[in-house]
């Protein structure tokens, strides 16, 4: 928090002029071997995840697992209701007349997948998170408007107060500041 001693720093925040500058700087920071760092932009920049060397997002796994679970639960529920809870013969059809149960099983699968996409995103993006050290930098408020940033944490093994700040300046940062933890 801002009231604490200045010795506890979260890291450095560097501002860049354009998405192109940010993109090229990200490639260099990635190649310099940093691991605890991030880029910030008002919109997703095409290809920036590769420029940062991010791994494939596991959100699709959440969607697959919850989607299939949703469809399975939907079908099992109808099977149980139609054959166990309230068996009722309609037009001489078998109790488990599964073709008629497909629409609801399908819709339940979609629901599961959609919930999976949201939960996958929230859990992977570590949201909701009301406070974060980076919010101490008031400059970062403009990231949701028109500004582009790179942040490098002190926790990174390659972090060095002087040389990292110099690296960011060399990469074209127009402003570099230390962020309180």
């Amino acid at each position: 928090m801002s009231g604490q001693a200045a010795s506890t720093e979260y890291g450095l925040l560097a501002e860049f002029q354009t998405p192109e500058h940010l993109y090229q700087a990200c490639e260099k920071v990635r190649d310099a071997g940093f691991s605890h760092w991030d880029a910030h932009s008002p919109f997703p920049i095409h290809g920036l995840d590769k420029a940062m060397g991010l791994k494939k997002s596991p959100v699709s796994l959440f969607v697959l697992v919850l989607g299939l679970s949703g469809a399975t639960i939907g079908m099992l529920m109808q099977w149980w209701v139609a054959t166990k809870a309230y068996p009722l013969v309609i037009s001489g059809k078998p109790l488990f007349s599964w073709p008629a149960f497909i629409p609801i099983a399908f819709e339940c699968g979609i629901l599961g997948g959609a919930v999976g996409a949201l939960l996958g995103f929230l859990s992977q993006a570590r949201l909701p998170r009301p406070h974060h050290a980076l919010f101490n930098a008031s400059r970062l408020e403009r990231v949701t408007d028109d500004a582009f940033f790179i942040s490098i944490e002190t926790a990174d093994p390659n972090f060095d107060r002087e040389s990292t700040a110099q690296l960011l300046k060399d990469l074209g940062a127009t402003h570099v500041e230390a962020v309180a933890a």
């Binding site: 990200c26 991030d38 880029a39 910030h40 932009s41 008002p42 997703p44 920049i45 920036l48 995840d49 940062m52 991010l54 997002s57 959100v59 699709s60 969607v63 989607g67 399908f106 819709e107 979609i110 997948g113 959609a114 996409a117 949201l118 996958g120 995103f121 929230l122 992977q124 993006a125 570590r126 949201l127 909701p128 998170r129 009301p130 406070h131 974060h132 980076l134 919010f135 970062l140 990231v143 949701t144």
Partner: peptide
């Protein structure tokens, strides 16, 4: 907004979730 800070590590998952939701909403 749940503490969104425009981080690329968030956008990365956000874009994937958005794409998959679009893929689910289309057959829906």
């Amino acid at each position: 907004s749940m503490g969104w800070r425009g981080s690329q590590r968030q956008w990365h998952h956000y874009e994937k979730a958005y794409l998959l939701l679009a893929g689910l909403a289309t057959p829906l």
